[in-house]
């Protein structure tokens, strides 16, 4: 089967006063019809820049797509003109952002913002667009949708604004929805509502979703596959079950160990990842995680690891997976005993 979206060897740089920043370095992944793929990473990992490139949202200058391709439904999005991109954005690919307050237009009624997409992309008449917009508001669980259609964003609560954003993004039934930290600004009880809604809509409309988050809990509950990014590089990629059961990159181990386990009452000390996130101005020559990695070997500082295939659909960019390296499972177990 052909992939819905295939990103291949994507490279994105930013020119700043401090020098050239390599925000995304040779990122490759794919998304199939109807699946939820999560991208996890910390600030500066390049996760947002990756999806902004898909949407053509990288400001240039200072941003520059240095290479690679983004195949979507058989077309390379990077070669399309602005006009052609505009047809795809909003109609075939929808996007929701972290902060619903700054991504909605404060001077425009919410209903009109939903209808706008339908009129532009689907040639709806005004009346039809209104009906469909009310229907969308209802679909995303906003009570009293007729009245809410006429209201401005400031009259909505945070959770409702994010629902409205989802309604806008899904109004044209896109094939792909990109959600950039959609629940980070929300309270947990509201986050649970919004994630539930996204899963429900994904099933109903068979939309593929790229979910960006820094919360491994959100990944475990929502996604089928996951990419872990660090320093502009995809360091590990696997199905969610596989990633949590058999992680093969020390950064993934570190992330899993630095979250407290709420299911036990024994007080374990957290195992943090030492050091600070990488300086993207002068990334290390080898693996971006090597300076913080307690298992780093000489080669890690010298040469970027290749992607090792662990099992079907599971790759890890770490030299420890080489057959000549010390066995990583031993290290993983060591990590566990340190933890106790």
């Amino acid at each position: 089967m052909e992939h819905l979206l295939k990103v291949d060897q994507l490279k994105v740089n930013f020119n700043t006063y401090g020098g050239e920043v390599k925000a995304v370095r040779d990122v490759s992944f794919h998304v199939d019809q109807g699946e939820i793929v999560a991208i996890v990473g910390e600030s500066g990992s390049g996760k947002s820049v990756t999806v902004q490139s898909i949407m053509g949202l990288i400001p240039s200058p200072p941003g520059m797509i240095k290479g690679g391709s983004i195949q979507f439904e058989g077309k390379d999005l990077l070669t399309l003109s602005k006009r052609q991109m505009r047809k795809i954005k909003g109609s075939k690919i929808g996007m929701i952002f972290q902060d619903p307050m700054t991504s909605l237009n404060p001077t425009m009624k919410v209903g009109k913002q939903i209808a706008e997409a339908l009129i532009t992309h689907r040639n709806f008449s005004k009346a039809n667009a209104k009906n469909k917009a009310v229907e969308m508001l209802k679909l995303v669980g906003i009570p009293n949708p007729e009245a809410r259609f006429q209201q401005y964003p400031h009259e909505y609560s945070g959770g409702m604004r994010q629902r409205a954003m989802i309604a806008i993004a899904l109004a044209c039934s896109p094939d792909l929805l990109i959600a950039d930290e959609p629940t980070t600004a929300l309270d947990v009880t509201i986050q649970a509502q919004v994630l539930e809604l996204m899963k429900e809509l994904q099933k109903k409309m068979n939309t593929a979703i790229i979910l960006i988050t820094h919360d491994l809990g959100v990944v475990a509950e929502t996604a089928q596959r996951v990419l872990v990014m660090y320093g502009g590089v995809v360091v590990e990629s696997a199905s969610v079950m596989e990633l949590f059961e058999n992680p093969r990159h020390p950064y993934t181990w570190g992330l899993l160990q630095s979250i407290p386990d709420t299911d036990t009452s024994e007080k374990k000390r957290l195992v943090p990842i030492a050091g600070s996130p990488p300086d993207l101005f002068s990334p290390p020559k080898g693996c971006p995680f090597a300076p913080r990695c307690k298992y780093a070997m000489d080669i890690c500082l010298e040469e970027m690891p290749t992607d090792y295939d662990i099992s079907d659909g599971h790759t890890a960019k770490c030299w420890l997976n080489d057959e000549r390296a010390p066995h990583p499972e031993t290290f993983a177990r060591l990590g566990e005993t340190e933890n106790a």
Binding site: P143, S157, G158, G159, M160, D187, V188, T189, I190, Q191, A192, Q193, L195, E196, D215, L216, G217, V218, A220, E221, V240, M241, F244, L256, I259, D261, T262, D263
Partner: peptide, 22 residues
Amino acid sequence: SAIPKTNPKMAKRERIMLQGDP
């Protein structure tokens, strides 16, 4: 019950979903 569980096996559990906003 709204805390996302970091264990995908436990993720499929009964959850008390609160309606509406505060």
